[in-house]
Design a protein around this nucleic acid. Structure first.
Lengths: 267, 267
DNA sequence: AGACTTTTAAATGTCTGACAAATGAAAATT
DNA sequence: AATTTTCATTTGTCAGACATTTAAAAGTCT
């Protein structure tokens, strides 16, 4: 593990990379304690603040955790599904909000992934997941529910569906993907009419899962995808009209992202 | 944006979180320059090293980039698909290597996701993707190819398939997922016999995509999944036998992960 | 002897102050 | 007018110091 002081990348970045390599390669195993900051500073021949910056980089990625006090220090973290999911959600959310991803593209990806686990969920779902889905359907039927709460319930519903596949790796990816789309979904204002339609499809999905019918689950999901896209298009068309009204020229195609974007200044 | 000095989370973590919030909420837009470290230190009423640690945390997640010199500073980064993918791959790789994920579970997730984009790839694939797949099939047929090179070619092949769906969000997730599984795949030693089998299935897949047959693509992918699992089980059974030979008692089920694991010391 | 309290050493968290290096803008020079 | 030099700004790094936390070790009392 040697460091090049001339490298423009910066010492702390190089050191972080070196330690990350040791973790990935298995030289440092889970729960193993790293040398103290003072020792690391000596090893890498840099100062303690530099080491600390490197460690903070690793901590930001949940690769290590630190503990104060005697016999404290930095320890290799066991990356939990929850930690991984959180990171995935923040990354995906930012990706969607900063890259002018069209609503259709994001929506298509999300439902393609969700359909992927429909057959597995139909085959393996347990009463728990069905119960959650039924409960969320009931909540979504309440008339006094805010749009945000409706969307949050939607996320819980679909997460239960994904969890029904009983595959933690799939759950990690899909629930992250679904959650990352929530800000986009929150842009849609749901009328009583559209809510009823969505709840009906949700009920279809729950029913298909109950009777362990994977094919039906997939086709209902497809209907839901198309309906969601249609709703989004309606919202965007309305906004487009409002924008046209105040005279500013904007994109004519209705399939751009809903979130407001800063002008893309490519570096 | 106020900070609580009494919070046990640590000042730099709180400050990083505050700035992250400003970025996610849109208060800070892409390519906007943050105040200088000295100014931030004054605003948050902490010292510059503390601010620096916070900024390094954000830099580790590609949320900001820094530039030295006059009119330099920290700038909000536009998160690119490539950056997001890289982060996703490292996170997923670590997750798989540190959580005793069974090979079957990871394999099942990977192929479920890949099948999800098969219909879209069949409908939209362009000559480019087909050309890449044919080229990789040719490479995989070379007899003098190392196992690692064979796996790398495998990744390229499947990535082309995924890219065929023409959905960048899907590509970001799936190619990341496929790449994260490579270390597990590298554990398998491919005999000439098994390579021939895999190449044949790959050819089937390419053919199905060429004729835009989504159903056939999916069924070939399913065959490939089952064959991959079978291969892994054979390898694991052999290792199990070797381990039994030297007398150490281990798990009897053959579906545990291939990678060596440290004992799980739950915190 | 055993249980409880106090001490203590090690480690991280933070601060102050300083210097080096890079960088672009403005000023000076040709 | 073009080029070079100067210069202020900002990040990168360092050194040393003190505060705070923590668990082990030593001490004390019953």
């Amino acid at each position: 593990m040697k460091i090049d002081p001339e490298n423009t990348a910066g010492l702390s970045a190089q050191i972080a990379e070196a330690i990350r390599g040791s973790i990935v390669s298995g030289a440092l195993i889970v729960d193993e304690r790293l040398p103290s900051e003072a020792e690391l500073a000596e090893q890498f021949e840099v100062s303690r603040p530099t080491i600390r910056e490197a460690l903070k980089r690793l901590a930001a990625q949940s690769l290590i955790r630190t503990q104060r006090g005697a016999f404290g220090g930095a320890f290799v973290n066991r990356l939990s599904y929850e930690d991984a999911r959180t990171q995935f959600v923040t990354t995906s959310t930012l990706l969607l909000s900063m890259n002018q991803v069209s609503f259709d593209t994001a929506c298509e990806a999300r439902f393609a992934l969700e359909r992927a686990c429909a057959p597995m969920a139909a085959a393996r779902r347990e009463p728990d997941q069905l119960a959650i889905m039924r409960a969320e359907i009931a909540r979504q039927s309440e008339p006094n529910l805010s749009d945000e709460a409706f969307c949050a319930s939607d996320v819980t519903f679909h997460r239960a569906l994904v969890d029904g596949a009983q595959n933690p790796v799939l759950s990690y990816q899909l629930s992250g993907s679904i959650e990352a789309m929530q800000p986009l979904m929150n842009m849609i204002t749901f009328s009583a009419r559209s809510r009823a339609e969505i709840v009906a499809i949700h009920a279809n999905i729950a029913g298909a899962l109950e009777s362990r019918d994977g094919e039906a689950t997939m086709s209902h999901l497809e209907r839901l995808e198309n309906y969601t896209k249609k709703l989004a298009h309606t919202v965007m068309a309305a906004r487009q009209k409002a924008r046209d009204g105040k005279g500013s020229a904007t994109l004519a195609t209705g399939d751009r992202t809903l979130v407001s974007q800063s002008e893309a200044k490519d570096t």
